[in-house]
Design a protein around this nucleic acid. Structure first.
Length: 414
DNA sequence: TTATAGTCAATAGC
DNA sequence: GCTATTGACTATAA
C-alpha cells in the first residue's frame, strides 16, 4: 500500500526497490560485499545523512481500466507539496471530442472533485465542467488546467472554459486537474478509489504532437486526417518551425509503427536517424522532454518527419539511399555523432582492434550505487578514495557518477 | 575548468 | 537475432 511518508513524499510499492539500498539494508548480500571492504569504508566515503529525501514527484499507474472504451489515464502524479495531478495526454481530442474524466472514492472522509466532463462543439469550442458538489475542501485549492506547451491555459477556479480558437484547441496537449489540500485535509492516498477516463465519441482519436512557432503555417501532424500531397513532401517541418514536440507520445507512436511493420531498431536508427541501434532504444524508452533538449532535437524531428509521411512513403523511405532519405524527410544530413568511430584511449594506436567494454564487478557496482544513494556528486577527492578502495581507475568512477546522475533522471517508468 | 548532452558500440539478456 | 543496458568519449554549455 502507498502511504504518506513523514517528509511529504509517497511511499509506493511500485517505486520501492529494497535491493537498491545497500547502505542500510540488512540483506546478506549487502553484508557480503560490505564485509569485503575495509572497515568503515562506507562511512568514510558515504557519511550517513540525517534524512534521505526524494525531490521528484512520485508517479503511479492507473489502478484499473474496466471499460472497453476506457482510455488509459496516462499519468497520475502526487507531488510532495500537497497537490495531486490527474492528466491524460491521449484522450478525446478527436474531431468530435467529448468525454469524461472521473474517479471514485471509497471513503467518505475524503471529499473532493468527483467528475470532470469536457466536450467540444462543431466549431471546435471546448467546454469543461465539473461536479465538485461533494467537495468540502476550500474551493481556492481547486484548479483546472488545459495544458498546451509551452504555456498552459490556466482557468483558475473557473469551471467554464472560454471560447477557444481552433488552433488553440488543437494545441492542447493534456488536461490537468489539480486538487490541492492543506495539511489538515491531506488524505491517505491509499484510500482514493479508481481512476478512469472514458471517451464517448467513437471518432478517431487525434493528438497534436507539434506546435509550430507562431505565426508559421501549421504543418500536418502524424496521423492527421487532413489530406496530404501524394508525395508527402509538405508533411515535413524544419527545426526552426517547431516550438514543441511531445517526445513521449512521438516515441510511443514510433515504437508502435516499428512493431506493426516489423521494422528493426537497427534499420530505423541507421536509416532514418543516422544513429546507432542502442541510441534509438534508449531514446524510445527514455524520451527527454522537448524543452530540455539542445542539439538532440534534430533526432526527434527526424522521427517526427518520418511519421508525418503517408504509410506507403514511410515504408519507401526505409528502402531509399541515405541522401534520398534526407530529402524525403526535408532535412539535411545530421551532424555525425561526435564520438562516432571512437576507440578507447588504449585502442587509438590500433583502430582495427575491437575494444572490449569494461564491466564493473558486482562488488564495485553495488558499492558505487550505495555511495550514489547518499552522494550523487562525490568530490574528486572522494572519487579517488573510492577508486583506490575498489581498485578502479578514477576515470571509471567519474564516468559512473556522470552516467548515474543523468540516467537516474530518465529511468524507464514502471 | 568542469559538467553536461548526445551518442557510440560492446555486450548482456531475452 | 533482436532489444536493452551501460562504460566511455567529446563538443559544447556553464
Amino acid at each position: 500500500m502507498m502511504s504518506w511518508a513523514t517528509d511529504g513524499t509517497i511511499n509506493s510499492p511500485i517505486q520501492s526497490n529494497e535491493s537498491q539500498q545497500p547502505c542500510t539494508s540488512n540483506s546478506s548480500r549487502k553484508r557480503k560485499f560490505v564485509e569485503d571492504l575495509p572497515e568503515n569504508f562506507l562511512d568514510t566515503v558515504c557519511p550517513p545523512k540525517s534524512k534521505a529525501r526524494s525531490e521528484d514527484p512520485q508517479q503511479i499507474s492507473p489502478m484499473t481500466m474496466e471499460n472497453q472504451k476506457a482510455i488509459p489515464l496516462r499519468e497520475i502524479t502526487f507531488s510532495g507539496n500537497n497537490s495531486m495531478h490527474f492528466s491524460s495526454s491521449e484522450h478525446a481530442f478527436g474531431r468530435e471530442p467529448s468525454g469524461q474524466l472521473s474517479y471514485t472514492e471509497d471513503r467518505d472522509d475524503y471529499q473532493c472533485l468527483k467528475e470532470m466532463k469536457f466536450s467540444m462543439n462543431s466549431q471546435n469550442n471546448m467546454s469543461l465542467f465539473g461536479d465538485d458538489s461533494n467537495n468540502q475542501a476550500n474551493d481556492d485549492y481547486l484548479n483546472f488546467e488545459l495544458s498546451r506547451t509551452p504555456s498552459p491555459f490556466d482557468f483558475g477556479d473557473d469551471l467554464m472554459i472560454p471560447e477557444l480558437s481552433s488552433d488553440d484547441v488543437r494545441a492542447i496537449s493534456q488536461v490537468v486537474l489539480t486538487q490541492n489540500w492543506s495539511e489538515e485535509q491531506k488524505p491517505n492516498i491509499a484510500d482514493i478509489g479508481e481512476f478512469e477516463v472514458t471517451q464517448k465519441s467513437t471518432s478517431r482519436l487525434r493528438k497534436e504532437l507539434v506546435q509550430p512557432s507562431s505565426p508559421v503555417k501549421r504543418s500536418k501532424p502524424p496521423h492527421s486526417v487532413a489530406a496530404q500531397s501524394s508525395d508527402g513532401s509538405n508533411a515535413s517541418v524544419k527545426l526552426d518551425e517547431v516550438s514543441y514536440i511531445d517526445t513521449k507520445n512521438l516515441c510511443e507512436r514510433i515504437a508502435i509503427e516499428m512493431k506493426d511493420h516489423k521494422i528493426a531498431q537497427k534499420t530505423f536508427a541507421e536509416k532514418i536517424l543516422c544513429r546507432s541501434q542502442g541510441t534509438l532504444s534508449d531514446l524510445l524508452n527514455n524520451p527527454k522532454p522537448w524543452d530540455n533538449l539542445k542539439t538532440g532535437k534534430t533526432t526527434y524531428l527526424r522521427m517526427f518527419n518520418w511519421l508525418a509521411q503517408p504509410l506507403s512513403r514511410r515504408m519507401a523511405i526505409l528502402e531509399m539511399d541515405i541522401d534520398d532519405v534526407h530529402e524525403a524527410l526535408g532535412m539535411s544530413a545530421p551532424v555525425p555523432a561526435r564520438n562516432a568511430s571512437k576507440r578507447s584511449k588504449s585502442m587509438k594506436s590500433d583502430p582495427d582492434t575491437k575494444r572490449t567494454r569494461f564491466v564493473f564487478t558486482s562488488i564495485q557496482k553495488e558499492t558505487l550505487e550505495a555511495i550514489f544513494k547518499e552522494t550523487e556528486r562525490p568530490s574528486r577527492e572522494m572519487q579517488e578514495t573510492i577508486a583506490n578502495h575498489l581498485k578502479l581507475d578514477v576515470e571509471s568512477v567519474y564516468n559512473f557518477y556522470m552516467n548515474a546522475r543523468r540516467r537516474k533522471l530518465h529511468k524507464k517508468k514502471n
